[in-house]
Design a protein around this nucleic acid. Structure first.
Length: 641
RNA sequence: GCCGAUGUAGCUCAGUUGGUUAGAGCAGCUGAUUUGUAAUCAGCAGGUCGGAGGUUCGAAUCCAUCCAUCGGCUCCA
């Protein structure tokens, strides 16, 4: 007999070798039908795997994230089975579940796979799913595993098996398809009722640019057709919020092939948003002891040779600009920090001066790979809300706390609550790639960890993700199609102070090297605004909205009164303009709604007579008649930061 | 940069197996209308069909190439 502990802590006894499926059936048939897997001692197992020791058990259904993972992982196998059945000589790489669905990397030989082939594969998958083939787990010896895939001629699986330890290898078979797999899987393919392939892409084997590129096929499946439809509907909705679409519609930015790819042109309304964000941050930074500086867009090549950026990125970047004096070379600045280091060096510093916090909205240029460019989220010219803090080692933690506080404040004011804060630390196994003494790193990493604790920031810690020059803390936010982007960033740097030989005089009258902290709450104005557009679907917080109020005269006769209203609002620092086109109000309202203008003020005979406005709110409709004073109050109440 | 897809008017799209002067709606302009909470009517104008080539009697349509965009991969100081 063995003891099984359930999530509610009740313990029951079962015969040795019982499966989770049998236990589920014992509870209820309905539950057993919904179960996809079971969590045995915190490890996900398939339902049919016999249990041989005392264990905790949690049954997993579609409603659990683990359930979806198992479901989609099994779906990847189903897709592989379908592809193998349709196209001969296919070799398989890896086929994991992802956040929404799954993919499989396949080598189709000469065949090119495109979205035209989706239907074929989908139909085959549905056909095979209908066979209700069980997923059968089978442990195999490494020797046998190698033999199987040698015979099949699949070098990718052999590559994978070679990295595995004998005794840990399992195969899974469903129908005619056998795959190397850790598992677990759903009981049988019949659970998969709805199938949709999403896209194809090239993907290098093992993510290595030098190896062969395989075809990555993305798909998603559901246990019910209705859920697939809901998913596709949500995808459609998300596309409507895409900042590239809204950026065009709301006239925020524009790209011109003539100007160059990745070089956004900011339109008047975009500039209003951007300037307001800049002013907001400038005010916050003034409160927190930052000193604004300004530096030019180019700098001598030697500057970046000193900083080390030229050596690391020179070849893949914009090439130098030459002057009439042949030997002089200048580079478009890829970073602001070298310039700021020179500002720090412009005068001697005492330990009493520190920290020195130099801030600049600095525009930088980086030659990003063409395939990486994306709307405002990845550009070749962008403006960082940059600052560099030069401080003593003992000040690192306090400065970190202050910066975290600033970033959190900024995010909160802009309604970003759904972000991930990622602490990137050094790889404890390989210290060779990092610059700076281990002692310094330890202090800095501990400082970051303590700082996040003290500020109550919830973080994810990743080892080995630190920059070569120091550990960092990044704030990541997802875009509308689920891609993660780094917005705010805080990075400790031991490299540049050395390279630029920065120093200050300590209390001991000896020269010391300061520590440098790079930080940018928005990250880049371009990317931040891009994500912000998606986040609010183009309905910006009122204080950021370029055109918050439009006055809509019912006819030409009331244009004069409309002008008066606009003037009075402007005097109250409320930007308002009038739609004086020769259209009916219905049309003007429609236009204004599509432009997502928050407040529409309809003025006609009644309003002119009473000195009022009829207020309509975007997305909400008619709010009724307001005196001008009341409207100003209503507006101000919402527009406060 | 790599793999796949896409590119027709300012925007959203149509254009049959290659066949005369390439279509529509919205936006724009002109005129009529003077309008009360999501599209008033009419007229006009707008395109070397992403670029430069090739095949053909004939190309938006077929081919190769380049550019840009989209989805990934790789990269991201």
């Amino acid at each position: 007999m063995l003891k099984i502990t359930f999530p509610d802590q009740t313990v029951k006894e079962f015969n040795e070798g019982i499966t989770s499926l049998e236990i589920a059936k014992g509870i209820s048939e309905g539950l057993a039908r919904r179960c996809l897997a079971a969590k045995i001692n915190e490890e996900v197992w398939e339902l049919t795997r016999p249990i041989h020791s005392d264990s905790t058990l949690r049954l997993i259904t579609w409603d659990d994230p683990e359930g979806k993972s198992v479901f989609w992982h099994s779906s990847a196998h189903l897709m592989a089975e379908a592809i193998e059945a349709l196209y001969s000589g296919v070799k398989f790489g890896i086929g994991p579940p992802v956040e929404w669905g799954f993919y499989y990397d396949v080598d189709l030989g000469e065949k090119t796979f495109s979205s035209d082939d989706f239907k074929n594969v989908e139909d085959k998958m549905k056909e095979l799913a209908g066979k209700n083939s069980a997923f059968i787990r089978k442990p195999v010896a490494k020797k046998d595993a190698l033999e199987y895939f040698t015979e099949k001629g699949d070098e990718y699986k052999l590559d994978l098996i070679n990295d595995l330890e004998d005794g840990t290898i399992t195969f899974y078979t469903q129908g005619n398809f056998t795959d190397l797999c850790r598992g677990p899987h759903i009981p049988n393919t019949g659970f998969i009722k709805a199938v949709k392939l999403l896209n194809v892409a090239g993907a290098y084997w093992r993510g290595d640019e030098k190896r062969k590129q395989l075809t990555r096929i993305y798909g998603i499946t559901f246990p019910k057709q209705g859920e697939l439809e809901e998913f596709l509907k949500r995808l459609e909705e998300a596309k409507k919020r895409d900042h590239r679409k809204l950026g065009k519609e709301l006239e925020i930015f524009h790209y011109s092939e003539k100007v160059g790819m990745g070089l956004p042109l900011w339109l008047p309304k975009g500039v209003i948003i951007r300037e307001r964000l800049e002013n907001f941050l400038k005010t916050e930074q003034r409160k927190r002891g930052y000193t604004p500086v300004m530096t030019p867009h180019i700098g001598k090549k030697e500057l970046y040779v000193t900083s080390g950026h030229y050596e690391k990125y020179g070849k893949e970047s914009f090439q130098p600009i030459f002057t009439p004096n042949y030997e002089e070379e200048y580079l478009l600045k890829p970073m602001n920090c070298p310039h700021h280091c020179e500002i720090f060096k412009s005068k001697p510093h005492s330990y009493r001066d520190l920290p020195v916090r130099l801030s600049e909205f600095g525009t930088v240029y980086r030659y990003e790979q063409s395939g990486e460019l994306n709307g405002l989220t990845r550009t070749r010219g962008f403006t960082q809300d940059d600052a560099h803090i030069f401080c003593r080692e003992d000040q690192v933690k306090a400065e970190f706390i202050s910066v975290i506080d600033l970033v959190m404040h900024v995010f909160e004011k802009l309604g970003f609550s759904d972000y991930t804060a990622q602490v990137s630390l050094s790889d404890p196994k390989d210290r060779s790639k990092y610059i700076g003494s281990q002692e310094l790193w330890q202090k800095a990493e501990q400082g970051i960890i303590d700082a996040t604790k003290e500020t109550g920031l919830k973080t994810v810690t990743v080892y080995g993700e630190a920059a070569f020059y120091g550990p960092k803390l990044d704030f990541m936010v997802k875009d509308v199609i689920g891609r993660n982007w780094q917005l705010g960033t805080i990075q400790v740097d031991y490299n540049l102070p050395n390279r630029f030989e920065l120093e200050y005089t300590g209390a001991d009258n000896v020269k010391h090297r300061p520590v440098m902290i790079h930080r940018a709450p928005f990250g880049s104005m371009e990317r931040f605004i891009g994500i912000l557009i998606e986040h609010c679907s183009g309905n910006f917080p009122l204080w950021l909205t370029p055109e918050p109020v439009v006055i809509l005269p019912v006819s030409e006769k009331y244009i004069e009164y409309g002008k008066k209203v606009a003037l009075q609002l402007n005097e109250n620092e409320i930007p308002a303009f009038m739609d004086d086109k020769d259209d009916k109000v219905g049309k003007k309202i429609r236009d204004s709604e599509l432009k997502k203008i928050p407040f529409m003020l309809v003025v006609g005979e009644k309003e002119e007579k009473d000195g009022t406005v009829a207020v309509r709110r975007h997305g909400k409709g008619d709010l009724g008649v307001f005196t001008l004073g009341n409207f100003v109050a209503l507006f101000r109440e919402e527009a406060v930061l």
